[in-house]
Design a protein around this nucleic acid. Sequence first.
DNA 1: CTCCCAACTTGTCAACGACTAGATTCCGCG
DNA 2: CGCGGAATCTAGTCGTTGACAAGTTGGGAG
Lengths: 196, 196
Amino acid sequence: MTPAPAKKPAERPYHHGDLRRAVLTAALDVIAADGPSRLSLRDLARRAGVSHAAPAHHFKDRTGLLTAIAAEGFGLLAAELAEAEDLKDAGVHYVRFAREHPAHFQVMFTPELLRADDLELTTARALAGDALRGAVASVRPDELGIDPRLAGVAAWSLAHGFATLLLGRNLDDPIGNQDPEDVFRTLAAMLFRRDA
Amino acid sequence: MTPAPAKKPAERPYHHGDLRRAVLTAALDVIAADGPSRLSLRDLARRAGVSHAAPAHHFKDRTGLLTAIAAEGFGLLAAELAEAEDLKDAGVHYVRFAREHPAHFQVMFTPELLRADDLELTTARALAGDALRGAVASVRPDELGIDPRLAGVAAWSLAHGFATLLLGRNLDDPIGNQDPEDVFRTLAAMLFRRDA
DNA sequence: CTCCCAACTTGTCAACGACTAGATTCCGCG
DNA sequence: CGCGGAATCTAGTCGTTGACAAGTTGGGAG
């Protein structure tokens, strides 16, 4: 039997074709523009040209939609971190991810919007966690001189804080129009410089 | 006809007394427990024992309430930072503030929930910004060896990221049951250790 | 071809934010 | 003391939303 990948061959008959993806994409637009609070399932349905209850069939409810977005985000983050060459570079990729997927990033770290026990979410998050720990392990222990677990927390905190403040437009003044990734490289160098 | 028999010592008079403070406090409870998204003006009114439209008189609308909370938060943060002795200590106080006022902290850095041009908010934020810059200025330039503005960004990013991840319960595994402030002191030491 | 089931629709309900008009109480000022 | 304006709170309403229930459509497996 053909697996029937079910791409979208039709315009918009009774069946939308790929409503799930359409709703996800529209949701990401709304969140990036106005935040998760202004997200409305009915609005997404309108944008997709379907009835007001159609999205619920794919995501159960609002929380389900946001959980799906977070899970997708952790998958994308894991892929991004996998490309990093060392811990400092992982931070750069972390910041890049936040800037390229601001909606995902925002939802991923707003736990009260998510179904914490969702399987897809927890596995995707674990994947991203593995990627981070892998980056930490790539540093020779004598290079940082402290518990590698704390080094991971330090790197994560610095990257997460920088990314969060950046997305919240809190760093516009201090860093002006410099490339954020370059600025972050400087910060990371402060954290991981070897003692002479 | 005398009104209904008084059930409790303080049967609700027509005027609440300090509804503004009561609504603020209740809102902080709700936000700390369930996040700003589950905040409902009508629910707060019920908790305070007033009609569903009463809170709007003090805060105009939902955004007004959240803006008032953020402004109060920046004031509290400025006071907390003013007690710091140096930049590293300012970070410790920043983390302490986030733990002691999680609801304020969350709202302060969720700009899409706030009225950005609100006067009280902008002045309070400026106050906190001054406090942070003051802490940065307390460091002798040769001690960090880089642009002091970037040092401020680094310190803020580290403290903000650590606090954010902490409140989101993302660091439960890595730091176990250690005192978060102690952990942060270690991280800050990484950032600001002098070369050689 | 038939039947099953996922995708989608229509209808409904309670809750909410926002707005309006009106009632009650407080307080400054004469 | 009392008067009048203003602050505070109530009551009613409207449009929107999330969630749910029940019915409809159509594609595809057998």
